[in-house]
């Protein structure tokens, strides 16, 4: 079973991620803050990471860089959650190692489409 780590300060977003993942039978760890998620990287090895870009505390781009710096996470897909107005930031995040993105708001179906491209 694939395990997914999702980080977003919005409970609503995390809930909709859960909806999409449960359908596919993936395991899910959710975190409201990037700092907490980082601490769990090694104990809860994930096959895919989903992260918001704008979060209080550590921001998404720093988080992505930190995840990529972890040897176990060098090649796993990282999906960022963006908004329409974040084009510049999206590019920055890609440079930091993000693999794909999904624009908020999104439906579980849309998220599923993205995941289908990255995990199988």
């Amino acid at each position: 079973m694939y395990k997914v780590m999702a980080v977003d300060d919005s409970p609503t977003v995390l809930a909709s991620i859960r909806l999409a993942l449960e359908r596919r039978g993936y395991g899910l760890y959710t975190y409201h803050r990037a700092e907490e998620a980082l601490k769990q990287l090694n104990s809860e090895r994930a096959d895919l990471v989903i992260t918001d870009l704008n979060m209080p505390g550590m921001d998404g781009i720093t988080f992505i860089k930190q995840v990529r710096a972890n040897a176990d996470y060098r090649f796993i897909p990282i999906v960022m959650l963006t908004t329409e107005s974040q084009q510049a930031k999206k590019e920055e995040a890609r440079k930091a190692g993000a693999t794909a993105w999904i624009t908020k708001p999104f439906t579980p179906d849309q998220l599923e489409m993205v995941l289908k491209k990255l995990l199988r």
């Binding site: 897909p77 190692g97 693999t99 794909a100 990255l118």
Partner: peptide, 16 residues
């Protein structure tokens, strides 16, 4: 050069 480190997977792309 960074293709792998961006989390991409060529096999999946070929499958698609």
């Amino acid at each position: 050069r960074d293709f792998f480190r961006q989390g991409h997977n060529l096999t999946y792309l070929l499958e698609d």
